[in-house]
Amino acid sequence: MGVLVVNNLRKTFKKNSLLGFKKEEKKVLKGISFEVFEEIFGFIGPNGAGKTTTIKVIMDFVKPDSGEILIFGKPNSDISVKQNLGFLPERPYIYGSITGKEYLDFCADVYGIPYYERKRKFAELLELVNLTGVEEQPISSYSKGMVQRLLFASTLINDPDLLILDEPMSGLDPVGRNIIASVMKMLKEKGKAVFYSSHIIQDVERLSDRVAIIVDGKIKLLDSVANIVQEFLRGYVITVRKRGSSSLEVLKVGVDELWQLLERLKSEGYEIISVEPDRLSLEEILVSYIQENRRAG
C-alpha cells in the first residue's frame, strides 16, 4: 500500500451569504483518488482546480464531505502520522519578529529534538538550502525566497518519510527552484515519498516520477511521466544528410514507421544526424485538458 492513499475525496464549500439566506454551494473536489509511493509525485493543475483544497483535506485542516485518506496506513486524523510528515503550505509565512533559529528551535521543540543535537542539525538544514549565516537575523529581514527556503528546510527537521509541499517552487528564482528540486531528488534517493503540487510544468516534467493532472476537482490523468510521454508520442523527427551533400533534411514519421524508414534511409545512403521524439509536452497536455473541460462546462 502507498505511503499516502487518497480515496474518492469529495468536498463542497458552502458560502453562507449574509443572514444565512441563499446558501451557495460550490463543489471543489469531485471524487479525487490517487496513491503515492516512495517517489516524487507531482500534482498539477490550473489555478482553482482544487490542489490546495486536496492538500488541506490531506492535512486534516478541512474535513471532506466523503472519502478516505490514509497516511502510512493510518487515517489522517491520527495525530501520530504527523510525526513522520513534513508539510509546506502555499505561500508560507512565519512571524517576522523572530529569528530563523528561533523558528527552527520551535520545530525542534515540537519533535523533542535534544538541545545538543540542534546546532549540528540546524547547520545541516541551512546548508542544504543555502541559508548558512542568516539564522540569527529576524525573519522580517529575509527575502520572500529566503523565507520559503527556510520553511522548506524546517519541514525536514524530523527526517520525514512523506513530504507534502503546496507549490514549493512558486515565488522562487531559478537558483532557489534548483535547490528545492535537488533536495527533493535526494530525498527520493533515500527512499522517501514527496507529494507536491505545482503549476510550473517544466519542473514537474523534469522532476516527477509520476504526475496527476487535476482540472476542476477531477483527476484527468494519472500516470508515470515516462508513460505519459510515450502515450502522447505522435512520431519522430529525423534529421538526415545525403552522403556528399552539405545540406540537412528533416523528415517526420509516425511511431510505427520509424524502423522501416531508418532501414530505407540507410540503404539509400543517408547519414542520420538525429532522431527526436515528436510529442506533446506536459504543458500542452494540461492545456488541452483545460480546454476540453471548458468546452464541456
Partner: peptide
C-alpha cells in the same frame, strides 16, 4: 497569515 498551517502540520 497561514502560520497555523505550519504549526498544525506538526504532531500537535
Amino acid at each position: 497569515d497561514r502560520v497555523v498551517y505550519l504549526i498544525l502540520s506538526k504532531p500537535l
